[in-house]
């Protein structure tokens, strides 16, 4: 997470309900407060759109990885069966490609899955040594947490706290990293 700097001070709105937090995002934004991110125990559909996050392009990466896998197997079968040690099997062409469709398919799937998941982990900065940036430990249990970076907002702490409470936050806490 690139935004993370040492002296960042956050205001954390803790919501009890997923439908409330989804509505709150629009309310808080229209009150002129910049939201850092919302952390939830499960995916809430429409939350990323409400927050204005751009649509992920990870599908393009997945396609390119799949294509790489496919071309790898096309090349490997062509090299081994058609070029390096050609054999006549069952009176067919050396490069009897219909018989290689299963392996081409398998490698396409394998490369897509591994490449896409790898891209996902890298682009989200996830890894075994990553320290999770937790604004409230309950956000992986039953609370919906909205983090506001005070350094990136013009409003005062008290003003933002009022906005958060008005939008339905059950608690408003301060979190310093």
């Amino acid at each position: 997470m690139s935004h993370h700097n040492d002296s960042a001070k956050f205001l954390v709105g803790v919501y009890d309900d997923d439908e409330v937090v989804l509505k709150a995002v629009t309310e808080v934004k229209s009150a002129g407060v910049r939201i850092h991110e919302v952390y939830t125990p499960f995916p809430i559909h429409g939350l990323d759109v409400a927050l204005g996050h751009p649509r992920t392009r990870i599908g393009i990466a997945a396609f390119l990885f799949g294509l790489t896998g496919f071309l790898t197997m096309v090349s490997l079968t062509f090299y081994t069966m058609g070029y390096d040690w050609p054999m006549i099997i069952g009176g067919k062409d050396n490069y009897a490609y219909p018989a290689y469709v299963p392996v081409m398919f398998e490698l396409t799937v394998l490369f897509t899955a591994l490449g896409m998941v790898g891209t996902f982990l890298v682009s989200n900065g996830l890894g075994p040594t990553t320290k999770p940036l937790m604004f409230d430990l309950r956000s992986t249990d039953n609370k919906f947490v909205m983090a506001i970076d005070l350094g990136k907002n013009k409003k005062t702490e008290a003003e933002i706290a009022t906005v958060l409470r008005a939008s339905g936050a059950a608690e408003v806490n301060v979190k310093q990293f």
Partner: peptide, 11 residues
Amino acid sequence: LGWNGGAKTWA
């Protein structure tokens, strides 16, 4: 893996 359930990550 340092998961924190951010909206962008979930999407």
